[in-house]
Design a protein around this nucleic acid. Structure first.
Lengths: 186, 186
DNA sequence: GTCTATATTCCGATAGAC
DNA sequence: GTCTATCGGAATATAGAC
């Protein structure tokens, strides 16, 4: 892996662990074993770094989306949950939660990049739910977009809250969402 | 309102708007019209300030809890939601979400104060749901504590996500949670 | 592409006068 | 209780050598 990718991966980790405002170019440089000036060569500003991290996650979501395009809705939703499971394993929150809490303290250019990605995720989950309902594998009464918001905020929120209530709560929430979706209601 | 309370209220606002790592003593001093040294007189360290903010919210929850102790479960849950509605109106996230995303970058003393408050909120909401189910006004199949986690993460998460998807999504989520809780399932 | 060196600004915190 | 003054450190960023 080249230096640029090493920086990017580490910056991503630090954003998810500590938050965008809580790490410095020195933190990156020290861990990697280079100098801060070298980081500025690859990413002129910290904003550039944040935007690259957002694009990294956007590409990750796109990849899963394509990979599961022909699978059944349950497999798609589980693939979506698995993205969050990976973060939970390392005590990280998700990039949407991390950047949204800092949104009004960071460069507006970051918000401009984040917005379409978040909206894209919402559309994707909404489509999964619609398809699941049409095929009779998911059961819910709310509007699909609203149900998608409920599920996304469950995932985003439990990654944050389970830092205090305990890691097992992540799987508890995940399993409960799936169980409720599969259960027919009167 | 005395200076100490003015500082506290502004620090709270900044934590909910920008995050703990994104505001400085100078930001507080400049807005209030005093010097940073005066803030240190009231709150020796920034950690002290965060802890005071946590206690402020803990007291707020306790007050609502007591005020609605003899009301019906629906009124209690709506009172719980109203706490978040106030934040939404000003584009703020909740203190739990703000501090949890920064948890691994701040003084452990802050985490020590935050933990019992978060656990207390979880217990409170769990009890509201249990009472509602017992009295036949709420219907859900998950364990009460798990359902409480789902609802709390919905509230915490939508305050963050609606910064991007739009403020109306907060009420959409709030209303849908209530509707689903009131609906009998097969 | 990485380095040294440095400019500039900002931050949390403290000492001591008033 | 608030101020001036300042310390020590850390931050983002840039210039220029190698």
């Amino acid at each position: 892996m080249n230096t640029k990718d090493v920086i990017l991966k580490l910056a991503d980790q630090l954003i998810l662990e500590k938050g965008f405002n809580a790490f410095s170019f020195y933190d990156l440089a020290e861990t990697i074993g280079i100098k801060t000036a070298s980081i500025h060569y690859h990413f002129p500003t910290k904003t550039d770094l944040a935007i690259a991290v957002i694009h990294l996650h956007a590409a990750g979501f796109e990849q899963v989306k394509k990979q599961y395009a022909t699978k059944d809705p349950l497999a798609k939703l589980e693939a979506f949950f698995n993205i969050y499971s990976r973060n939970k394993a390392e005590g990280q929150v998700c990039f949407v939660g991390s950047l949204c809490t800092d949104l009004y303290s960071i460069d507006p250019a970051i918000e401009a990049e984040l917005t379409p990605v978040v909206k894209g995720i919402l559309i994707w989950v909404t489509e999964i739910l619609k398809e699941g309902k049409r095929k009779g594998v998911f059961h819910f009464s709310a509007a699909p977009r609203t149900k998608a918001l409920l599920i996304i905020t469950n995932m985003l929120g439990i990654l944050q809250v389970s830092r205090i209530t305990g890691k097992p709560d992540f799987n508890e929430v995940r399993n409960t969402i799936l169980k409720e979706l599969k259960t027919k209601k009167g």
